[in-house]
Simulated assay, not measured.
Amino acid sequence: MAGGGTAVLCQVLSGTGGVGKTQLAAHHARTAWQAGAVDLLVWVTATSRDAVLSA
């Protein structure tokens, strides 16, 4: 795209408690941050839709 568009990437992890979702998400976030692949990194406790929107 010559005009410099914006790309929004999203990953969703789901599953029951204790299967390692948080550790997987933390590893992915840390790796992306250290590689300089992201300009902004926000960690949100997503207990509900409202919690995500307010964060």
Rank of each mutant, 00 (worst) to 15 (best):
R49I: 05
V42K: 06
V8Y: 05
G36D: 00
L41H: 09
S14W: 10
T22I: 08
G3S: 14
T22G: 03
A55Y: 02
L53I: 11
T16G: 12
T45K: 07
V8Q: 08
T22C: 03
G20M: 01
G3Y: 13
W43R: 10
D39C: 03
D50R: 04
V12I: 12
A26S: 12
A55M: 03
L24T: 13
G4E: 04
A35S: 09
G20R: 01
G20L: 01
V44D: 00
W43C: 07
Q34P: 02
Q23W: 08
T6N: 09
L53Y: 09
S14V: 08
S54C: 13
T6V: 14
R49L: 10
G18T: 03
A46V: 05
T6E: 08
A55R: 00
K21E: 05
A46Y: 04
A46C: 13
A35L: 06
T6M: 10
G3M: 14
Q34M: 15
W33P: 02
V52C: 01
V8C: 09
L24S: 11
T22A: 06
W43Y: 12
A51I: 00
H28A: 15
R49A: 10
A35I: 00
L40H: 13
S48I: 07
G36K: 00
G3A: 15
W43F: 11
H27Q: 12
R30Y: 09
V19R: 02
C10H: 11
G5L: 05
T31Q: 15
L9M: 14
R49K: 09
A35P: 00
G36R: 03
V42D: 08
A37F: 07
T22S: 14
Q11K: 03
L9T: 10
T22K: 07
M1Q: 08
V52G: 00
V19L: 04
L53P: 00
L53V: 14
T31H: 12
G15H: 03
L13T: 06
V42Y: 04
S54E: 15
G17I: 02
V8R: 07
W33L: 12
D39H: 09
T16C: 12
T47Y: 01
T47K: 04
T6Y: 06
V44W: 01
A29N: 02
A7R: 13
T6A: 10
T31L: 11
C10V: 13
Q11P: 00
S54F: 09
C10Y: 05
H27K: 11
R30P: 02
K21C: 00
L9V: 14
K21Q: 08
